[in-house]
Amino acid sequence: MTEKMDCQTAQELLPASGLDALEVDEELALLAHLQACAACRAEANALRPVANSLGLAAADSGQPAAQTRLQVMTRIGVSSRSQAMLLSQRRGVFRPIAALVPAAIALLLIFGLSAAVISLQGQVSQHQARLERVTQQQAALRQFMLNAQMQPVALKIDNPDANAVLYAADDKVAMAVTGLPPLAGDSVYQCWWIDSKTGEVKPGSTFRVDANGAGIWAWTRPDTKEYDQMAVTLESKSGNTQPEGPVLIMAEF
């Protein structure tokens, strides 16, 4: 989808976007429009909390088990102590970055921008003006991610037709890919978290790509201390507890 989207179309897509119910190509086109249109962006920001409020409709399931609270407090306690020194240094240097990751839509905007940049890269030789814009977007993307304390991660991509970018923060990663081979049957792409010291592999999310082999994802990192690598494999089915298919993308944090 390369044609510019008008505001009417964008407005029609916004409710579904708020529910994360658009296809990737629709989301990308919408995000490109939102980047340029303050009015629609404001509408998107207004609709997102409305969509999120649907969670309040979930029937009451009672309290989680008591050990869940203990687990949370233990995990943040460990995290807090390990980061205390770093945070005390940062506090004097960095301002609060409320504007950097202001909402899920903003994060999606960046991920979408990233994938849009990738998908455009194959056409830049024919569209010099677009190249200039893409370069500007890449610079903006890079700056945004740096401001958000998300860092680009070097990738090994074992497929000449594929391209990917990955950004990582302490607790999450964001990846955009294009050109991955289409999936057949029950096959899926799967992310794996790897502890290179012990060789332990923890299964992560499975995902599919659109007709262009493209997609955008954000995942929570399971444990930044232990899992220092991430791999994407092509699996014949979901549910594998160990990788069985070929490694397509490899990242080292």
Partner: peptide, 8 residues
């Protein structure tokens, strides 16, 4: 909010 979160 854990009850709400858990219910969702």
């Amino acid at each position: 909010y854990s009850r709400l979160a858990f219910s969702l």
